[in-house]
């Protein structure tokens, strides 16, 4: 439901606040994104630094780090996901309640980063679970994580509550569980979840 922005501003000047249910609902959602207390590698230290006094993540309503996935809205993949860890990451993601979001923090979470060619390193977490925001960097600075938060908030704010792009918790048919890869004799099986990730086409 669109609202006449000029009219809204004009009424705001007169002391009348007008909004839509969708805007109010999403404003509430975006201002209390609770991340999961979940650190993987180097980026986790920058994540901790972001929550500390200097960068102060609390300004975004996201200072409450929950140790349990059931209480968290946001998973920050802060570091390298190894093949030994990947099943656990997917399982933790499955345990989170909708609506849930994922930030892939740093080069390793995006693609394996500098460790990409290692035998035990997963080449990007988006092979198994959907990622909302990617932040490049090795490790990204705290400012970059804040930028990712703002990007995520804008994304939440813009989500329509009806229609095909509605959040998954309002969609009864949305996929809830993501298959957990199995640790095989040589590699993870399967090596990616085709429902989430297809091989990107490289254009040169």
């Amino acid at each position: 439901m669109a609202i006449d922005q000029e009219l809204k501003i004009e009424m705001g000047k007169q002391g009348v606040v007008v909004t839509t249910l969708q805007e109010l609902y999403n404003w509430g959602r975006k201002s209390s994104v609770w991340p999961m207390q979940f650190g993987l590698a180097c980026c986790a230290i920058e994540m901790i630094a972001t929550t500390m006094a200097r960068y102060d993540l609390a300004r975004f309503g996201a200072e409450v780090f929950r140790p349990s996935p059931r209480q968290a809205d946001l998973m920050i993949i802060s570091g390298t996901v190894t093949k030994k860890m990947a099943p656990q990451v997917v399982r933790l993601y499955n345990q989170m309640g909708e609506p849930r979001y994922v930030i892939a923090m740093g080069a390793c979470a995006i693609s394996g980063g500098p460790f990409k060619q290692g035998y035990n390193v997963l080449k990007g977490i988006d092979r198994y679970i959907p990622v909302d925001v990617h932040i490049p960097g090795c490790p990204p600075r705290p400012e970059a994580l804040l930028q990712a938060f703002i990007t995520l908030q804008n994304k939440i704010q813009a989500q329509p509550l009806t229609g095909p792009n509605r959040p998954r918790h309002l969609d009864a048919e949305a996929q809830g569980e993501f298959p957990v890869p199995v640790q095989g004799e040589h590699d993870l099986e399967p090596t990616s979840n085709p429902g989430v990730w297809t091989v990107p086409v490289v254009i040169r």
Binding site: Y119, K123, D187, T191, V202
Partner: peptide, 10 residues
């Protein structure tokens, strides 16, 4: 020999 996960190598 590394396992075959070379689907996407930009």
């Amino acid at each position: 020999v590394l396992p075959d996960d070379f689907e996407y190598e930009p």
